[in-house]
Amino acid sequence: MLLYALRRLIYLVPVAFGVSLLVFALVHLAPGDPISAIVPPDAPQEVVDKLKEYYGFDKPLPVQYLRWLAVTLTGDFGTSIGTGRPVATEVASAFGNTIILAISATTLAFSLAIFLGTAAAYAKTRIVDRLVTLISLVGVSVPHFWLAIVLVIIFSVELGMLPPMGLGPENATGWRLDWPHIQHMILPTIALSVIPLGVMTRTVRATIKDILNAEFVTALQAKGMNDRQILFHVLKNAAPTCLAVMGLQAGNLIGGSILIETVFAWPGTGFLLNSAIFRRDLPILQGTTLVLAFFFMMLNLTVDVIQTMVDPRIKRG
């Protein structure tokens, strides 16, 4: 098992290089000149050239890539064009904020999905099953940024119950576990959790329904196991499939929360990416995308390893 994880880690090295090349290429192939975004339109040409030289944009692209790769490997992601602060610092704090939101959204979505999906699969009356299917359908079809705006209108504007934006009180410096901060998390968490809730509920329901039809469930009943004991067997059988989908969904939450973070002005990677795109802040774009890509790779690896641990039929050595 450990060997398998290690080997997978080593395989990640060439993949990581490919990813870095891709990230660099995408960012640089996009139209627009990063320098013109930060200097006034009437700035003298020398100043522009100086800035280009300072940030290294005057070199040919392959040289730029190798230079970027070299410094990145030392853990230095460069300096933000927009704020002048180190990219590493900016990305780290944004990533932390995104993770916090993602954890609360996945916890909400997955626990609710496991409950609803299992209930629907076990449901003896059609109403329960239909209701849960409806919930999951709504979950996957409602545009989550629209839901975000609706939530803000209802709970912030109309009822004034919850703050509409930011990660905490005005002069807060970072996220902390206290009531004002949690209040700020509630709406974005709900908005972010609808899609994974819908997808996971569907997956859990279908997987468990399938397993309940398996002969071994009858065999378990035939040897006198009670419903709780059988549920344990069923859940362990459902785990590998559900984990795989959960991994994908969790990954989507990290990368795909740009809209939600923008609506709620949540200072995470999505928010950072959004502003970096408008400012053509290439170092930030590169740094954030790279960190997200690495996170994806690690997440996939983790899911694979856990799956292998849960399901003895998966042979990976």
């Binding site: 398996a214 065999a219 040897k223 362990k236 059988n237």
Partner: peptide, 15 residues
């Protein structure tokens, strides 16, 4: 006690 036609499916595969 009962034994089944398909021992392959009558055991839980993950235990």
């Amino acid at each position: 006690a009962m034994i089944f036609q398909e021992p392959a499916t009558a055991f839980d595969p993950v235990f």
